[in-house]
Amino acid sequence: MKILVVCGNGLGSSFMMSMNVQKAMKELNMEGTCSHTDLASAKTENADYYIGAPEIMDQLNDGNRKIISLVNMFSMDEIKKALTTHVLEGR
């Protein structure tokens, strides 16, 4: 499984968020990879799930991509909850 963390520029926020997502994946015993990129590249990169701030996710949401929006990208609780509902339980 591939998770792509996306932000506007692809060099700051998405990197920090991806560290937290990787930590959460480990704690949830999830298999898969997590990388980070900017919004423009994300539009042409395939991933099972796209994670990012709500504003960024709105621009990525074409109805086909599976997207996960995070309000506080540093809250481990929010990240774990989001991964559990969207990925593990597949809702």
């Binding site: 932000c7 506007g8 060099l11 701030a53 960024i56 309000v71």
Partner: peptide, 17 residues
Amino acid sequence: FGPYIVMVPGFAMPHAR
């Protein structure tokens, strides 16, 4: 892109490339 630079409620990290 919208205010995604507000990474945590109350905290913003403005940046560009």
